[in-house]
């Protein structure tokens, strides 16, 4: 049963992630330009991935906060906009090569490994790279991960009713890209936290998922 919605703006990595056999029974793709109240029926959680259309999301922010007020969970990854999120995200250079040049020094210095997403993860599995940082977070939010310079990478708050978790990591996009091979560790824990469902196995996308046509 699909209990996790994924707000989708036609980006290929979102599509490959949500249609992969490993996750497709749990994930409902919601095209952002068709997003409405009915889209959220039956869902317990919502994912807003990196490379989303922030302007389109901002225009529908009431739907997001209404969902949250019902005690649901929302996971936001990558960048975000102050037009809909009460936090300030800022761009930073992305370090994709620390694991080659300095493998024992990932670009995260603090992680709250008691958080359900991070319980049991190794340091390397809890960070591959980050896309920017948060320089301000909501008033009641707590930091989950920090950069060595003190900037916040991941945070969580319950002040809107449900649980809002935001991170500048990009597990959904990178898992969809299929080039970081250890991401099953992070994403499977994330899926369990969002839905209560345990998933296992490897991430693959069948060739027939490509070249699809769209009903207009």
């Amino acid at each position: 049963m699909k209990t996790i919605g994924l707000l989708f703006n036609g980006v290929w990595s979102h599509y490959t992630f949500a249609t992969a056999p490993k996750y497709k029974e749990l994930i409902k793709l919601i095209y952002i330009h068709d997003f409405n109240e009915a889209s959220l029926e039956g869902l317990e959680a919502l994912i807003i991935p990196f490379q989303s259309n922030q302007k389109a999301i901002a225009s529908k922010k009431e739907l997001i906060y209404n969902f949250l007020s019902k005690g649901k969970k929302i996971f936001v990854e990558g960048d975000s906009s102050m037009e809909w999120l009460d936090a300030k995200w800022e761009d930073r250079p992305t370090n994709n090569y620390w694991w080659v040049e300095n493998p024992n020094n990932p670009p995260i210095s603090e992680t709250d490994f008691t958080h359900p997403i991070y319980q049991g993860l190794s340091a390397r599995h809890s960070c591959w790279h980050t896309h920017g940082a948060y320089t301000a977070i909501p008033s009641e939010a707590k930091s989950i991960q920090k950069h060595p310079n003190g900037e916040i990478i991941s945070w969580e708050t319950n002040q809107y009713g449900g649980t809002l978790f935001a991170t500048t990591l990009d597990p959904i996009v990178e898992h969809g890209v299929q080039q970081i091979t250890h991401l099953d560790n992070y994403v499977d824990k994330l899926i369990y936290w969002l839905s209560g469902n345990k998933v296992s196995g490897t991430f693959e996308v069948p060739k027939e998922n490509y070249g699809i046509s769209i009903e207009c």
């Binding site: 290929w12 990595s13 599509y15 490959t16 890209v177 299929q178 080039q179 991430f203 693959e204 996308v205 060739k207 998922n209 490509y210 070249g211 699809i212 046509s213 769209i214």
Partner: peptide, 22 residues
């Protein structure tokens, strides 16, 4: 310059695959 998983490009189709190592 992107991965077109839908079939809008005439005659050509992009495919993602993880069966080769980067």
């Amino acid at each position: 310059f992107d991965g077109w998983f839908t079939n809008w490009v005439p005659g050509n189709q992009w495919i993602m695959s993880n069966d080769k190592k980067t």
